[in-house]
Design a protein around this nucleic acid. Sequence first.
DNA 1: AAAGATTGTTGCTGACGACAACAATTGTTC
DNA 2: GAACAATTGTTGTCGTCAGCAACAATCTTT
Lengths: 172, 172
Amino acid sequence: MSNRATQATLKIPKNSGAKRRAGGKPRPTDNSSAIELDGLLGHAGYAVRRFQLWIFQDFIRTLAAVDITPTQYSVLTVIGANPGLSQMAVAQRLGIERARLVHLLDSLEDRKLVKRIRSRTDRRSHALHLTAQGTVSLRQFKLLAAEHERHVAEKIGKENREQLLRILSGFT
Amino acid sequence: MSNRATQATLKIPKNSGAKRRAGGKPRPTDNSSAIELDGLLGHAGYAVRRFQLWIFQDFIRTLAAVDITPTQYSVLTVIGANPGLSQMAVAQRLGIERARLVHLLDSLEDRKLVKRIRSRTDRRSHALHLTAQGTVSLRQFKLLAAEHERHVAEKIGKENREQLLRILSGFT
DNA sequence: AAAGATTGTTGCTGACGACAACAATTGTTC
DNA sequence: GAACAATTGTTGTCGTCAGCAACAATCTTT
């Protein structure tokens, strides 16, 4: 069986939002808001997918100035809160492929935000730490991320956001 | 700025779930459940991402026998509920790139579930319809999808699921 | 010491979104 | 009605991402 993945980042469409047709008169297939979604509306997966699309776009837009994606942010946050973690541990915790994490860390290391230090207790693994600059930067990232969360609260409502987090808390 | 996308499908990991280490004694970096997630837990995006991961995996697993992904299911559902729709209309409605929809329809057409019919009113566009077989198959898909929804309800609770759908209803 | 498992790494495949370019067709504008 | 602009479906490119397999170095178990 073939299947695909819920990725973490996304490009921001340029012509998102308003779109105009050649003419002014809408044709049958055009008024998309009237298109029946049938059972699809009752599917949690569909609702969640659309919501995630929105939420990631807003995150990326809000953190665009510092060029940090949701995935990068999650990696930095975990390392910042748990210095010395191995790559495997981070990958497992965040549900990222360890092969994928290699590239993520390469990028973050190039930007001097993270450093890999060979563990002396287990010389196979790397102890991950934030650099001094990484620590400072992460503080700023968190401020921007908090701003993004406020956008979410504005979008779905403060109480709804908290309710949502409560409902999904089981997925850590 | 670079960003990425929230995709629709995912492969099911083989060794998901239980994993054993070389030894029996847990080492510091190993007990992943104790790893601090810091502010990450308060982020809707992270919770939603993890939830979507779970939900798509379950959908794919539940519909594995018929080899239908969430995206394919959404396309079939919309066409089934709105026969004659153009590709643009479907793409817009589901938030799929029209270039991407071309391949999706190619696949569904190969499997004799969907047919493209040139519209006479607008000879640029294709009117999309389910085949007879597609109509029959979709009925079965819907049964399996309903089973998947029951899994969701079991996982997060019946009331929580409904609450979730209510909260996210604005994202259509 | 030998065998098995784990860690980080590289490379491969397939799926996906964004984008650009194109032919055919339709609508607008002069 | 002719020239121009826009839309539709299509193809192809690019970058991101998940899963998988293979590998060397290293650790654990036997």
